[in-house]
Simulated assay, not measured.
Amino acid sequence: MQNSQSSEIINAPIEPDKSARRSLSTLHLPANLTLTAIPPERIGVDGQYDHNGLAKRVVLQLQELFGIDLVKNLRISQRGRVVILMGNLPDGMLAKSLMEAILSVEGALYVEAQNLSITEKLPRSL
């Protein structure tokens, strides 16, 4: 007899608590809700939304500060607010200056160096 009562309890339908239900109409959100602020890492060179905006602004900043010849040997991309720096640098001291310049661009939070080669020529001593 106890088994039949136990099976009735297990098989009993579960009634949801209707007081816990919420609909979108009770949240009182405006119907014309839009996001107007562009995240800083997505602001393009022209100020409009650009998925790779941070990387493009970093390239422009580096060209202005270090020249086009240096930047053409680099590949700059982004992952969110992280700027990824790849390529060849002629000088090891230049890497620190580049990273400081990258971090000065609005939206850059961190610099990640991947496959960055330093082709510094050391003086020959005899």
Rank of each mutant, 00 (worst) to 15 (best):
L109C: 06
L103D: 00
P30W: 10
V59C: 00
L89R: 12
H28S: 01
V83G: 04
Q48F: 13
G107F: 08
K72A: 10
S104H: 02
L62H: 02
V111S: 01
L126A: 08
I68Q: 15
S23C: 04
E8Y: 09
L74K: 02
M93T: 14
G107L: 05
I118V: 12
Q78M: 06
V71L: 08
L89D: 09
S19M: 01
I10P: 05
E41S: 10
L126Q: 14
S77M: 10
G107M: 06
R22K: 15
Y110Q: 15
A108Y: 02
L109A: 11
E15Q: 15
V83L: 08
L24Q: 04
Q114N: 05
T26D: 15
E120W: 10
A20H: 13
I9H: 04
A37D: 08
S117N: 13
S4P: 08
G107T: 06
L98H: 04
K56D: 09
L33F: 03
A113E: 14
M86S: 09
D91T: 04
I84R: 13
R81K: 10
I14F: 15
L62F: 05
T119P: 07
A20K: 14
I102S: 01
E8K: 15
Q63G: 03
L70C: 00
L74R: 02
I68D: 14
Q78A: 00
L74I: 04
A37N: 12
S77T: 14
Q48A: 12
I38L: 10
L70G: 06
M1W: 10
L60C: 01
V45L: 09
R42W: 03
Q63R: 12
R81W: 01
N3E: 14
M1H: 13
V83I: 05
G44N: 02
L29K: 01
R22E: 09
